[in-house]
Amino acid sequence: MNLKISKQSGIYTLTSEQLLPISLDEAWAFFTVPGNLDRITPAEMKFSITNNPGLHTYQGQIITYTIGILPFVKSNWITEITHFVPKKFFVDEQRFGPYSMWHHEHHFTETEDGNVVMTDIVNFKMPFGIIGDILAGKVVKNRVVFIFESRHKILKQLFI
Rank of each mutant, 00 (worst) to 15 (best):
N2Q: 12
N2A: 15
N2H: 11
I5T: 15
K7T: 06
K7V: 12
Q8C: 14
G10A: 02
Y12E: 00
Y12W: 05
Y12D: 00
T13F: 03
T13P: 04
L14K: 00
T15N: 12
T15Y: 06
S16W: 04
S16Y: 08
E17N: 07
Q18K: 08
L19N: 15
I22Y: 07
S23L: 10
S23A: 13
D25N: 15
D25W: 11
E26G: 11
W28R: 05
A29S: 15
F30M: 00
F31H: 10
V33H: 13
P34R: 05
P34F: 04
P34T: 06
G35M: 13
G35P: 10
G35E: 09
N36H: 05
D38G: 14
R39P: 15
R39A: 14
I40C: 01
P42G: 11
M45W: 14
K46Y: 14
K46Q: 11
S48N: 11
T50L: 06
N52M: 11
N52G: 15
N52L: 11
N52A: 15
P53R: 03
P53G: 08
G54Q: 00
G54S: 04
H56M: 14
T57N: 13
G60Q: 09
Q61A: 07
I63E: 05
I63F: 06
T64D: 09
Y65K: 07
T66Y: 12
G68R: 08
L70F: 10
F72Q: 14
V73P: 01
S75V: 10
S75R: 05
N76E: 13
W77K: 01
T79Q: 00
T82K: 01
T82C: 04
K88Q: 06
F89Q: 09
F89C: 08
V91E: 02
D92R: 00
E93F: 08
R95W: 11
F96P: 12
Y99P: 02
S100A: 15
H104Q: 10
E105C: 15
H106I: 01
H107W: 15
F108C: 03
F108N: 03
F108I: 02
E110Y: 09
T111H: 08
E112F: 14
G114I: 12
N115L: 10
V116M: 03
V117K: 07
V117D: 08
I121M: 05
I121F: 09
N123V: 08
N123M: 13
F124D: 01
F124P: 03
F124N: 03
K125V: 06
P127S: 11
P127M: 09
F128A: 07
F128V: 15
G129D: 05
G129N: 09
G129R: 02
I131S: 05
G132N: 00
D133W: 03
D133A: 09
I134M: 04
G137E: 00
K138E: 07
K138H: 14
V139D: 06
V140I: 06
N142V: 01
N142K: 04
V144S: 00
V144Q: 00
V145S: 04
F146N: 01
I147T: 05
I147E: 00
I147F: 05
F148E: 02
E149C: 01
S150L: 09
R151G: 02
R151N: 02
H152C: 12
H152M: 09
I154S: 08
I154M: 06
K156W: 12
K156M: 14
Q157L: 10
L158P: 13
